[in-house]
Design a protein around this nucleic acid. Structure first.
Lengths: 150, 150
DNA sequence: ACTAACTAGTTCAATATCGTATTATATAGG
DNA sequence: CCTATATAATACGATATTGAACTAGTTAGT
């Protein structure tokens, strides 16, 4: 790699980092006190992918240590947004199911982010974003794979 | 905004968030124990922009509360990477100066990230990234401004 | 000058993240 | 079977992040 190109890649990841931070703040502004972006992400994942998964599977999906997932699921359970049940096939494990309250919270939150998204969408139309997303997805997959190689 | 477009924007911010998380982990793998990505970002900022800034200015630049900046600067100072001096014009304030050790650490870290960047750059060439970066910068600026409006 | 309002930074308390060690259960080899 | 190893989850301790309260110093209005 040409050394003069390094700043470009640095800037790329820098912009990504800042946007991530700002968008996270935007999301958390819509969540009830005590809930943070990672908690919402778990609820979202349980619906988009499927619920009934084990805590460890979720920890891997989110690239966080399992202790972090234990903690986050504890918060969600305390709020009645998920239910943890013993795993039918493995006594060591558990299954995570989203509750009705969890579904409702997720829907309401998405609804509440509407105005902020709309302002963003007005400036950056779906075509523009739609062109970038596949590239980002490709990059995410690449970095993900590179990490697994460790 | 067409409601069917919401998932696109959700996915966009989701990909951004994951890439941010993964790239942060990549960077931290190159930092000495006890130093994290935000600390490095501060060193980087002191060189890219300028040093001699106040802690509050830095806090605003990074969109973090000033208490967080106090803490981070304390870590950097403890490691001898920055020096905090009384502000010559304002008795309440301070100036943050990067030390020689700080410069060296920053350079060595950038050097160390070389291989990881090279692998990424091999798959995603500068032209591709160069097309996306300006768009991201524009989005970052927009979100930044929207936040200030609060 | 004097006082009120404001500002920069720190201290403190609460919570999040995460590495290490521990417990309970499962699996594989003899 | 029985034992060694592996795995799922948790407990615990250390550090990061952040809001609220506090201290010290500055600025503005009179």
């Amino acid at each position: 790699m040409d050394r003069t190109e390094i700043p470009l890649y640095f800037q790329f990841f820098n912009e990504i980092g800042i946007i991530g931070q700002l968008s996270r703040a935007m999301l958390e502004a819509q969540l009830p006190k005590g809930l943070l972006a990672p908690h919402f992400a778990i609820l979202n994942h349980l619906i988009r992918v499927r619920d009934g998964q084990t805590p460890l599977t979720l920890a891997k999906a989110f690239q966080v240590p399992k202790t972090t997932m234990t903690h986050s699921l504890g918060i969600l359970e305390k709020h009645g947004l998920v239910a943890l049940k013993p795993h039918p096939k493995d006594g060591r494990s558990k299954q995570v199911w989203i509750t009705e309250a969890g579904r409702t919270l997720r829907e309401n939150t998405i609804e509440a982010t509407g105005p902020a998204f709309a302002a963003f969408a007005e400036k950056f139309d779906p075509r523009t974003v739609g062109e970038i997303v596949p590239k980002l997805a490709e990059m995410r997959a690449f970095l993900d794979a590179a990490r697994d190689a460790d």
